[in-house]
């Protein structure tokens, strides 16, 4: 199957996903980048389970070797868990949009409203007694 070829592609895809997460200001696209990162990790595992000349791990009468079923099991469940957690992230994006009116990270960081409900623990004004 051509040496480490698959692993190199896994790294390229993973780094592109990582780049999207770091650079894109849009929260939905960030989640998309995380998904690309995650899917390339899945490809890494499946590549580990491949056996040259093998077949899918379903028992038949032929004498071909079977590819390793263990990575398949781990990744199969990880994909469905991945979509559930992605949906949770998207729900958080929706809540951020309803609270702050934007899903652009730069706008959120610049906007004073983002911080209005949070008290800075290092703020000296908070040191004073508040019971008046």
């Amino acid at each position: 199957m051509g040496g480490l070829f698959n692993y190199w592609f896994v790294i390229v895809l993973m780094m592109l996903g990582f780049y999207i997460v770091m650079v894109s200001p849009n929260l939905v696209k960030k989640i998309m980048g995380l998904n690309i990162f995650q899917t390339s990790a899945f490809l890494l595992y499946i590549s580990v389970g491949k056996i040259s000349g093998g077949t899918a791990p379903i028992l038949t009468d032929t004498t071909m070797p079977y590819s390793n079923p263990l990575p398949h099991v781990l990744i199969l469940t990880a994909i469905v868990v991945g979509v559930a957690t992605t949906a949770l992230g998207l729900a958080l994006v929706v809540r951020i949009h309803s609270s702050f009116g934007s899903i652009n990270e730069d706008e959120l960081l610049d906007d004073e409203d983002t911080y209005r409900d949070f008290e800075d623990p290092l703020d000296p004004a908070l040191e004073e007694p508040t019971d008046r």
Binding site: A56, I58, L76, T77, I79, V80, V83
Partner: peptide, 12 residues
């Protein structure tokens, strides 16, 4: 049990 498939795929 016999071919590709199972609860995860069927649920989705």
């Amino acid at each position: 049990d016999f071919g590709p498939g199972g609860g995860f795929q069927a649920g989705v």
